[in-house]
Design a protein around this nucleic acid. Structure first.
Length: 592
RNA sequence: GCCCCUGUAGCUCAGCGGAUAGAGCAACUGCCUUCUAAGCAGCAGGUCGCAGGUUCGAGUCCUGCCGGGGGCGCCA
């Protein structure tokens, strides 16, 4: 019925933008080829065009007159939408119900819900999670893991080739210390026992041993000497030393797998490319940087300097490529990694989902890599930084005793609390099913809490709030989804027939319009590496649905035609919520 | 000293240079004989840290100041 304009490119907003732009190309002088019409959602209409005022200013004409000229040039407007000049020079755009309904039908019939892939498909490396071998993961790793995983999902859905890289801390001086301690205290070696059942307690043993070793290292100079020697043995490939290292790494990986399983993230064994992977490249990188004069010797160390990076004493602060003792630190590993990712993995984009405290480090690494030619102008590298995790008191998140909170314990707690709530709300539910749901809800709550706030800020981790399951929490979205499923279950499986010649009620209209915004949101998430935009969108969608749910009965709709349309809206909303939650890494159970 | 992040309702946070700054929690008032009340509707709550500037238009951009957090040579 709508002919040409009913062929949607992505969203109604994008269609409106296309229409306005083509009208502008006729109405405006050719000196304004690509002026932005600034299409935005509006409270006064469906969309508003803001760009005419600034363009009129530059042209020296009356903005209302210009807006009027543009509106006149818009083709086929009545069938699709009405455009009217308002205020100082806005154009208010009100879509026809027909246009909105035909868009609903289109999305429902598309297995990607009408979401296009990105215009250019890129190879994107995402470096995230980065736990340390022989140490327990903490809430900082949780943030990196959750944010990075969501970005991986969104970018994959957008059609990019995503290469996940879990840059494990599996190498370096601390391993000399750890292995030496192990050798000197064989009887407590936790890697000797390899019963797979007690994985998490083994990591605790490993963790405990790490701390004991660290304590000795900090207090006993002779142990420091022996540890240094052990590092040399490790790097030289001494068999006994390597055996111990392998055992420790294997133990830790079992633990990581357990955490990742519980979190339901995409990371697998194949994504684990730790620091040790780059060990064999370090000599070459150091030699290369020196040969290219990117790095120079200073106080015995091989350093890269930057004009604008100085310490408190006013002297330049280097990125140390090789220590005075000949060893390598993490800077060299990061340089080897960035080169590997650009040259071997052929990355167009490299994202580092890492704590914001490492901002300066990455600034130096990126700059050094550019100077050395490891990445050229076409490669985008970005430190996707996030703030610290704080407790409800606003101080660093620790236990009462001041220890780092164990991640597994935290997740177990979340799941357990969710289980209690679920059993309370559904006394008829079996224990097994309740636990299954509890995992989806509990983990979803933890993830949503993190993903719903902008990542650059410090993040207050408040288990009580996220698991109260009230208001803006993960459970709210899951609940909305489950309610829709409950409605849909009452209808036969035959797909609803959408008719576009039906007048829409305001709640239907708002819902249909909002559900149409998903592709634009996903594009924004890609653009900014900010999954919280998706979280906010889904919350708004769930809330808009719930209002619709209260005001527009589906089962007992006034007519069969309206019922069909409402079923279609329900189905599209459910699919959108499910997809959106999935892209955040959160499950969408059919019942709650 | 320099650099980065941050300051929006009592608390936790959204807010792309656009019209009257929004949610959630907490408080108060209603709403379950009707598709799941983990919900909905309403009410109240704000000199958007302060001061300048740019702009037709600033919570949003720029500068300065104040407050909070973080970082700054051989740890990661």
């Amino acid at each position: 019925m709508l002919g040409e304009i009913a062929k949607p490119v992505s969203s109604l907003g994008a269609i409106v933008e296309g229409m306005v732009k083509s009208a502008m190309s006729v109405a405006l002088p050719p000196t304004f080829p690509n002026a932005d019409p600034e299409i935005r959602r509006s409270e006064r209409a469906d969309f508003q065009v803001n760009g005419m005022m600034s363009i009129a200013k530059k042209l020296g004409v009356n903005p209302r007159v210009l807006a009027g000229d543009v509106v006149e040039k818009i083709k086929l407007q009545d069938q699709f939408a009405t455009f009217e000049v308002a205020g100082p020079g806005f154009i208010n755009v009100t879509l026809s119900d027909q246009a909105i309904l035909s868009q609903v039908a289109f999305r429902l019939g598309d297995d990607r819900l009408g979401c296009p892939t990105a215009s250019k498909n890129k190879t994107i490396v995402i470096d995230y999670s980065q736990p340390n071998i022989a140490k327990e993961m903490h809430v900082g790793h949780l943030r990196s893991t959750i944010i990075g995983d969501s970005l991986a999902r969104v970018l994959t859905f957008r059609g990019h080739k995503v290469i996940r890289q879990n840059h494990l801390g599996d190498w370096g001086t601390q391993f000399g210390m750890l292995i030496q301690y192990l050798l000197e205290n064989e009887e407590i070696n936790p890697t000797k026992e390899t019963s797979t059942e007690k994985v998490s307690s083994d990591i605790s043993d490993l963790n405990r041993m790490y701390r004991a070793a660290r304590e000795l290292f900090d207090s006993d100079p002779e142990f420091v000497q022996r540890s240094r020697k052990r590092v040399v043995s490790l790097q030289a490939g001494d068999e006994e030393t390597i055996d111990h290292w392998n055992a420790i790494v294997a133990e830790s990986k079992r633990y990581f797998r357990q955490v990742y399983d519980r979190l339901n993230v995409l990371l697998t064994e194949e994504d684990a490319v730790g620091e040790s992977f780059y060990n064999s490249m370090l000599d070459e990188v150091a030699l290369d940087l020196e040969a290219r004069n990117v790095a120079v010797r200073s106080q015995g160390a091989l350093c890269v300097f930057f004009d604008d990076i100085v310490g408190p004493d006013g002297n330049q602060v280097p990125l140390i490529v090789q220590k005075a003792d000949g060893g390598y630190g993490y800077a060299t590993t990061d340089l080897a990694a960035i080169r590997y990712r650009a040259k071997t993995l052929q990355a167009d984009v490299i994202l580092y989902v890492v704590d914001s405290r490492q901002a300066l480090h990455f600034k130096m690494v990126f700059e050094a890599a550019r100077r050395a030619g490891y990445i050229d102008d076409k490669v985008v590298v970005s430190h996707v930084s996030f703030g610290s995790v704080l407790g409800p008191d606003g101080r660093p998140f620790k236990t009462r005793a001041g220890d780092v909170v164990r991640l597994i314990a935290l997740l177990d707690d979340a799941v357990d609390r969710a289980r209690q709530t679920i059993l309370e709300k559904n006394p008829d539910l079996g224990e097994g099913e309740a636990l299954l749901l509890a995992r989806e809800v509990g983990i979803g709550a933890v993830k949503y809490a993190d993903l719903s706030t902008s990542r650059t800020r410090d993040y207050i981790f408040d288990v009580d709030r996220m698991l109260s399951l009230q208001g803006n929490t993960g459970a709210y979205l899951q609940y909305a989804h489950a309610r829709i499923c409950s409605i849909l279950n009452k209808f036969s499986s035959s797909p609803p027939i959408v008719r576009d010649d039906v007048v829409m009620e305001p709640p239907e209209r708002r819902l249909a319009l909002l559900v149409d915004g998903l592709p634009d949101v996903l594009a924004a998430v890609e653009e900014t590496s900010e999954p919280h935009k998706l979280a906010s969108y889904l919350y708004e969608l769930a809330h808009t649905f719930t209002t619709f749910y209260e005001q527009c009965p589906v089962l007992r709709a006034p007519s069969e035609t309206i019922r069909q349309n409402r079923v279609a809206l329900c189905e599209l909303t459910a699919k959108t919520l499910e997809l959106g939650l999935h892209l955040l890494g959160i499950d969408a159970p059919n019942r709650l």
